[in-house]
């Protein structure tokens, strides 16, 4: 992104804030205007080898997802459950003496099922909301230690070795995608380290990708349920399932007014 563009983004965000205070933000949290895929870089079609990675990740790929909200079933939590299993989120235990409601609000969650209802028509839309893996992530902008970072292949992650738990990133994220680990976690999975005092969020199952397995637990679970609402793949590869799906159907970013060029795109909103 050039310096001029950077400046332009800045002014737009300020204008948006002005609008927001005037109280005219749409309930669905989706800005106006058609989405152009110009932000997604030109196609470089090389498949990741199906073997453990030996070279550092590169810009050749940009991992992302396409979510068709019209296929996302009401009451289905397959993606959330699969994510919990895959990333050890189900191993968190409620601290002694904590009340249930507070715990449910505090426990780490990587995917949230969000239900939107159009006030005028009553039409209900369900969608899974996770880290949107922005090209210009606000969480990275605000991190005082550089712990919040974007991997070369577009995955926005937290380096917990340098995270000090200040939670600025949680404040900055427009998608409420990040969670803070408040208590020591007794059981951990080798693939998903987790400890008190750090922030974490969806990492697009980076451990799978690093092993050459191009899939995420949520997309797989959704397909297993025969809903096929989540498609995962390489946004830079026009032959990838995610690009194929995006070519067929109009999709948009949530809060596209922020111009973050998210890696997760939604249809049916």
């Amino acid at each position: 992104m050039s310096r001029e563009e950077e400046q332009r983004v800045d002014t737009q965000r300020r204008r948006f804030l002005g609008v927001a205070t005037a109280g005219t933000v749409a309930g669905t949290a989706v800005g106006s205007g058609a989405l152009t895929l110009g932000g997604l870089a030109a196609a470089v079609a090389t498949d990741a080898a199906s073997a453990p990675r030996t070279e550092p990740v590169s810009k050749i790929h940009r991992w992302g997802m396409f979510v068709d909200a019209s296929k996302c079933a009401d009451g289905c939590t397959a993606c959330v459950d699969a994510c919990d299993q895959e990333n050890g989120l189900n191993l968190q235990s409620e601290p002694h003496g904590s009340n249930e409601a507070k715990w449910q609000n505090q426990r780490s969650v990587w995917i949230r099922k969000v239900k939107l209802q159009d006030r005028a028509s009553g039409h209900v839309t369900n969608l899974p909301l996770m880290c949107q893996h922005c090209e210009h992530p606000p969480c990275v902008d605000v991190c005082p230690t550089g712990a919040s970072f974007k991997r070369a292949d577009g995955i926005v992650m937290v380096d917990r070795h340098t995270c000090i738990g200040c939670r600025y990133c949680m404040m900055a994220c427009p998608y409420k995608a990040r969670s803070f680990i408040h208590e020591q976690v007794d059981q951990k999975l080798t693939r998903a380290p987790r400890g008190k005092g750090c922030v974490e969020s969806c990492n697009l199952c980076a451990h799978r990708l690093d092993e050459g397995d191009i899939s995420t637990a949520c997309a797989q679970a959704c397909a297993d349920e025969n809903h096929h609402a989540i498609v995962f793949g390489d946004l830079k590869d026009p032959t990838s399932p995610v690009r194929q799906a995006m070519a067929k159907q109009a999709s948009r970013q949530i809060r596209e007014d922020l111009q973050l060029n998210t890696g997760v795109r939604y249809a049916g909103l």
């Binding site: 917990r160 951990k188 080798t190 451990h207 690093d210």
Partner: peptide, 16 residues
């Protein structure tokens, strides 16, 4: 081991 697993559980890659 505040964060990392203390027993081999849920490895996701082949250890060379």
């Amino acid at each position: 081991f505040d964060c990392h697993a203390t027993v081999p559980q849920g490895e996701a890659w082949n250890q060379v």
